[in-house]
Design a protein around this nucleic acid. Structure first.
Length: 489
RNA sequence: CGGGGUGUGGCGCAGUCCGGUUAGCGCACCUGCUUUGGGAGCAGGGGGUCGGAGGUUCGAAUCCUCUCACCCCGACCA
C-alpha cells in the first residue's frame, strides 16, 4: 500500500477512489463498471446488512430469494416501470458459446433464445408474478417478504459503491389489504432506514418524499432518506415506495376481503444498497482515510504490539493476554496486528482503514501498567491504566459513535441554507454548495428550469415541511411545498 | 454517440519528437542482517519485449497504416 491519499481539498472524487482502493474495500472488476468487494469492504457491508436484517425481522418481515432472470415481457406489464428501466437492462439472448478457429470463442447462433431473458434491474415484476399465485384471501395478507440480492443496471458512468453495473442490495416487497396499511408500511420502513443511517452509520439524513420526476418508476409515492456528503453533495441513501395498486393491476393480483368482495392488492417496495458504504466513506472520511462508526466497523479496536526483541515480544503477548479476553467478553471486535513491520506503518495503515480505536502496547506500557489508546476521530493519544481499559474502550466507542453523528450533523446543518432570492440560490449552488431549503410551486416546469440552470435537483420534500406562507424561489408563486435542493450523486 | 487523452514488470512513470549497446526509475515483492513508541536502513535478488496486427528499415518502444482496450469531459442515468 503506497502512502496517503489525495487530499479532499485537492480533488474530492480522487480522494474517494483512493480511500476505497487503499483501505482495501473494493477493486475494479474486469468488466467495465463492475466492482469486487474485498473482504474488509464486505465485512463492513455485512454489518450494515445484519443490522437492517435484524430490524425488519423484528417487524415481522421474512427473507426469501427470487430469480436473477426475468422474462422480457414482464418488464413491459407496468408502463411507467418499463419506461424507467428499459434503457439500462442487460439481456440474455443466447445460451451457448462455441469455439471458433479465428476468434477463439464465439456466441453460438444456434442457441438463440425464443423469449429473451433480462437480468433483473429490480424484482417487482417476478415477485408480483408469484404473488398472483400466493394471494387469494385477505388471510394471505399482509405478505412481508424481503430479499438480499444482486441487481444489474447497465449504467454509462460508474463509481465504486456509489453506482456500479451490478450491486448488492435488499429489496422488500410487501402486499397489503388496504391503502392505509401500505402507506403505514412505507413509512415504517422509511423510519427504519432513518434509524439505520443515523444510529448505525452515524449519517444524518433528511427524510421525506421525492418529487414526481425523481420518484421510482411504477410508484405512487417514493419516500427517501437523503444525506450530505463531505463535498456537500446529496446522496440518496435509501428509498421506500408506496406502489399503490399499480403492480397488482399489472399482474392481476386480487384478494377476497372479509365481505367476500374481490379487491386489488396494495403494494410497497423498498431498498438500500452497497451505495451506503460509499455514504459512510464520504460522510466521515478525512485526509488520513476512512473513519468508521464503531457499530459497523469490522474491527472496532486494533492492537499494535511494540517490541524490540523476542523477549519483549513475549512479555507484550503475556500482557495482552491479561487484557484482550475481557474486551472480547464485552463483544468488542478486536484485531491484533502481529505482522512484521514498523509500528508507524501500522498506525497509518489502520487509520487508512478507519478503525475507531487503536491500542498501542509496548515495554513502556507494561512498566506503567497501562495501555496507550488513540481514537480515530481526534488525533489524541492517552495512556489508560490497565484495570480501567475495558470500561474506557467501551465508553470511547460509544463516544466516537455519538461524536461522528454530531460532527456530521453539524456539518450538514451549517451547509443547509435558506435563501430569499433565486440569485442567492444560484450563487450558493455555484460557489460554496450545500443544501438549499426553499419554497417550490410544485410544478415540473420550475423543477426542470432550476435543474437546467444550476444542476441542482429537488432531493426531498421533508416529511416535516412547513410550506405555509412560503413563496416559490423560482416563480415567486405561492409555494406548494418546502423542499431541499442540491447537486446530487 | 460527440470532444480530448493514455496504453512500457503488480502499481505509478521516464524513454517516443530526432530509430542504434543488455529498455530504465520509484513504489511494491523475495532473501539476509541490523531495526521496531508515527509510513526503518543496508546489501543482494526475481519479474517486462514496450496493447495487438501489418508495414518501412541493416536495425523499431521510437516512423507509417489498421485495430483493440481503457480513462477524462459532455450527453444519458441516479
Amino acid at each position: 500500500m503506497s502512502k496517503g491519499v489525495t487530499p479532499q481539498s485537492k480533488d474530492y472524487a480522487t480522494w474517494y477512489t483512493d480511500v476505497v482502493t487503499k483501505a482495501e474495500l473494493a477493486d475494479y472488476g474486469p468488466v467495465k463498471g463492475t466492482m469486487v468487494i474485498r473482504p474488509y469492504g464486505f465485512a463492513l457491508w455485512e454489518l450494515i446488512k445484519d443490522s437492517f436484517d435484524m430490524m425488519i425481522k423484528e417487524n415481522g418481515h421474512v427473507n426469501a430469494y427470487f430469480p436473477l432472470f426475468i422474462p422480457k415481457s414482464f418488464l413491459a406489464k407496468e408502463a411507467e416501470h418499463v419506461e424507467g428501466f428499459a434503457k439500462e437492462c442487460a439481456i440474455v439472448t443466447h445460451t451457448r458459446l462455441k469455439s471458433d478457429v479465428e476468434q477463439g470463442i464465439v456466441v453460438d447462433p444456434e442457441s438463440k433464445l425464443e423469449e429473451e431473458v433480462i437480468v433483473r434491474p429490480t424484482s417487482e415484476t417476478v415477485i408480483w408474478s408469484m404473488y398472483k399465485k400466493w394471494i387469494q384471501s385477505y388471510r394471505d395478507l399482509p405478505l412481508l417478504i424481503n430479499q438480499w440480492a444482486n441487481v444489474v443496471r447497465w449504467e454509462m458512468r460508474t463509481r465504486l459503491f456509489l453506482r456500479t453495473t451490478e450491486f448488492l442490495w435488499q429489496e422488500g416487497h410487501t402486499a397489503h389489504a388496504s391503502a392505509k396499511e401500505a402507506q403505514e408500511e412505507t413509512l415504517l420502513i422509511l423510519e427504519l432506514y432513518r434509524r439505520l443511517a443515523e444510529e448505525y452509520l452515524a449519517m444524518p439524513v433528511y427524510t421525506g418524499l421525492k418529487s414526481e420526476s425523481e420518484k421510482f418508476a411504477g410508484a405512487d409515492l417514493t419516500y427517501c432518506i437523503e444525506a450530505m456528503m463531505g463535498d456537500k453533495r446529496a446522496l440518496q441513501a435509501g428509498t421506500s415506495h408506496n406502489l399503490g395498486q399499480n403492480f397488482a393491476k399489472a399482474f392481476d393480483v386480487t384478494f377476497q376481503n372479509q365481505d367476500n368482495i374481490e379487491e386489488m392488492v396494495y403494494a410497497t417496495s423498498w431498498g438500500i444498497s452497497t451505495r451506503l458504504v460509499g455514504g459512510v466513506i464520504m460522510t466521515h472520511g478525512d485526509d488520513k482515510g476512512l473513519i468508521l462508526p464503531p457499530k459497523i466497523a469490522p474491527y472496532q479496536v486494533v492492537i499494535i504490539p511494540i517490541y524490540r526483541d523476542k523477549k519483549d515480544e513475549q512479555s507484550v503477548k503475556d500482557y495482552l493476554n491479561q487484557i484482550i479476553p475481557s474486551l472480547k467478553m464485552k463483544g468488542i471486535r478486536i484485531h491484533e496486528d502481529w505482522r512484521k513491520g514498523s509500528p508507524g506503518f501500522k498506525f497509518n495503515e489502520w487509520e487508512m482503514k478507519g478503525v475507531p480505536l487503536r491500542l498501542e502496547v509496548g515495554p513502556k506500557d507494561i512498566e506503567n501498567n497501562s495501555v496507550v489508546v488513540a481514537r480515530r476521530d481526534y488525533s489524541e493519544k492517552e495512556a489508560v491504566q490497565k484495570e480501567s481499559i475495558v470500561e474506557t474502550v467501551s465508553s470511547l466507542l460509544d463516544d466516537i459513535q455519538t461524536n461522528l453523528f454530531e460532527k456530521a450533523k453539524n456539518f450538514r446543518d451549517s451547509n443547509t441554507h435558506t435563501v430569499s432570492s433565486y440569485n442567492e440560490f444560484k450563487d450558493i449552488i455555484s460557489s460554496k454548495g450545500g443544501f438549499i431549503k426553499c419554497g417550490w410551486d410544485g410544478t415540473e416546469e420550475t423543477e426542470t428550469a432550476i435543474k437546467n440552470d444550476t444542476k441542482a435537483t429537488i432531493r426531498v420534500i421533508p416529511i416535516d415541511e412547513k410550506p405555509n406562507g412560503l413563496k416559490c424561489i423560482y416563480s415567486g408563486k405561492e409555494a406548494k411545498h418546502e423542499v431541499i435542493f442540491a447537486k446530487a450523486y
